[in-house]
Each structure stands twice: as structure tokens, then as C-alpha cells.
Design a protein around this nucleic acid. Structure first.
Lengths: 174, 174
DNA sequence: TATTGTTATACTCTATAACTATA
DNA sequence: TATAGTTATAGAGTATAACAATA
């Protein structure tokens, strides 16, 4: 008789001893992917109690700081397609954390607002996330601030290459 | 009559003027996400001609550098579940770029190898990716090397927090 | 009993396309 | 004709669970 499979989450993109990573080890992009993978898992650990993904956390913050914002603007700020912003908003309203109200100046649009429950949830999440980030920066020491500045510059540089006038036609994401 | 929707890829996680990002702007994790988003789109632009995702590119490199490697080891190296490694391998073999051969020492396992076509495709991809990375590093100047080192340290630090003996139980990825 | 790989299934994320109502 | 949001659908990506063959 075979044992029932144990849960097998993995997800840790650790370098495996004995595996040759070839060109990957030299790539800035691969280092970035490894770091993002590790931070993603760490974010989940830090917020395990509240079960909210980084994306949904970001949406809560944006709606809280920009009450009445349009669904489409939320999508634009988060790099999402309209349909993605719709599903994200659906989820937040289903949790009872956000609500759609008619926009006064445009009958086609909604204004998004956090509910009282949403504000309470966000307050807990923000505390956990801030503590998590603080612990990371502390572990990195003085390298931390430089790293954050470097990442911001990298985002800018990569975007500039992507939107340069003379580059090849852009392909859709898969 | 309504116009047919034009394609609407978006995906650019640019800061939107007039939107207040609140706590997000201060978080290392959010800076990392923005950078990864920008680099991801830039990778696609640089490799548009060959239509291979970063993940599939990494799999090609790993199989090329570790001929005969097990499917499970590929998954482990890439942070994938067994079933994910299976689907990735299925896709690579369907393209005619990789093949499964019986492992000599274990009748349950496969050894993975690139085909001649797979090696040719990888050579083109590696050239494009290396050039892409070189351009990025050049744009970053002396900050580039420090950034890469910082990312590697960040991955290590976040993993250490995640696997520390006294932390809370880990939740599954969503 | 544990491991390798498979099959089947499901959920999330994100896209495309076509549609409605409004501007 | 363009925009805000919706619906329906599809494809990655990744997970769970149960299974067979082998170790």
C-alpha cells in the first residue's frame, strides 16, 4: 500500500548543490527572480495570519490612500488589465473590505472605498508588512538603502529600454 | 456601432501621477516587485523573436549544463512542484527541444537532454539574453554589480528568515 | 515505506474579445 | 467614436490528491 502524498509546497528557489546554473548565475535578471521568490515566500510567512497576497495588500493600500478612485485607475497603478482590476475588486468586495459606489461625475464609473472592516484588516496588515520590511532592512544593514535605490533605478532603466523609440515591436505577455 | 477593442497589454507597473502609493513607496518588497515587472517586460522585448518565457529559458540552460538530469531535480532547482516540472518538460519535448531518455541507474526516472534543435534555440536565446543583460548593466554603471550582489544577499536573508527555527508555520502559496 | 513520475483536477493570475451603457 | 466596466473564455503557472512502478 502506498502512503498518501504529503503536501509538497516547495517554491523555494534555492541554488541546488551539484547543479550547474551556467549563464543564469551571471544574469542580473536571474538574481532578481531569486530575490523576488525568496521575498514572496517571506511575505507570506509574515502575513500568514491574515491570508492576503502581496497584490491584494497593495490594492488595499491604494484604495485607502485614494478613496473614490476608479477601478480602471487601480488597474493602471498596478499594471493590470481592466479585467484583472475587475476580478481584484470583486474579490475585495466579496471579503467585505471594499465597496463600489456610484461616481458622482460619471455614470459609467465606480468610486472605490474601503469598508470599516477593510480599514481594520489593512491596519493589521500594514503593521505586519512594515515590521517584515524593517527586519529585512535591518538584516541587510547599510546595504539595504542602496539596494532599494538600485532597484528603483533598475525599474526606470528597464522601462526606458522597453519604451525606447527605436526598439523592436513588443510582444504580448504570455 | 462600437469599435472592436484594440489589444490592451499594459503590464507596465509605472507610478501613476496623482496616485498616492502610501506605505508601498517605502517598502523594499514593492521596489523589488516594480523592478521585476519592468525587467520581465524588457526580457520579453529582447527575446520577442523566439517566444520563450524566462522560466522556459532557464529550463533550457539547466538541461544543457546538466545533461541527463532528472525531471525532479529540474523542478527542485527551479522551485517547482513535481507536476510543474512535468508540464514544463512536456512543453519542451513538444517543441522538439528536449527529450527524455531512460536513466541507466533508476528505472523510475528519466534523464533529460537537449536535442540538436534545442541547442540551436538555446544558443540564439543565450546571445539575446546576454546582450540584454549587458545593456542593463551598462546603463546602471558601477551601481550594477553592487545591485546584483545586494539581490543575492537579499535572497539569502529572506530565505534565512523564512526557514528560521522559531518562526510561524508557513502558509502555502495561493 | 519512500521516491519518481504520471494523471486528473482546480485555483489564481492575466490576457483577449465582444458586449453594454455612457460620454 | 472613445471610455468604464462587464461577461465569457483561454492559457500559463502552480498546487493538491491519488496512483503505478520501482527502490
Amino acid at each position: 500500500m502506498t502512503k498518501t502524498d504529503s503536501p509538497d509546497p516547495e517554491g523555494l528557489m534555492l541554488p541546488v548543490p551539484g547543479v550547474d546554473y551556467g549563464a543564469l548565475d551571471g544574469l542580473l535578471g536571474y538574481a532578481l527572480r531569486r530575490a523576488q521568490n525568496a521575498l514572496y515566500l517571506d511575505f507570506y510567512r509574515a502575513t500568514a495570519e491574515w491570508d492576503v497576497s502581496p497584490q491584494r495588500f497593495a490594492a488595499l493600500v491604494l484604495i485607502a490612500r485614494n478613496p473614490g478612485m476608479r477601478q480602471g485607475l487601480l488597474g493602471q497603478a498596478m499594471g493590470l488589465h481592466r479585467s484583472g482590476a475587475l476580478r481584484l475588486t470583486d474579490w475585495l468586495t466579496a471579503q467585505g473590505w471594499a465597496e463600489r459606489r456610484d461616481a458622482p461625475d460619471d455614470a459609467r464609473a465606480w468610486g472605490l472605498y474601503l469598508t470599516a472592516a477593510g480599514k481594520r484588516r489593512l491596519a493589521k496588515l500594514e503593521a505586519a508588512v512594515a515590521e517584515h520590511d524593517r527586519a529585512l532592512l535591518a538584516a541587510l544593514g547599510e546595504q539595504g538603502a542602496a539596494l532599494k535605490a538600485g532597484l528603483e533605478r533598475l525599474a526606470w532603466v528597464a522601462t526606458a529600454q522597453n519604451t525606447a523609440p527605436d526598439n523592436k515591436p513588443r510582444r504580448q505577455k504570455p
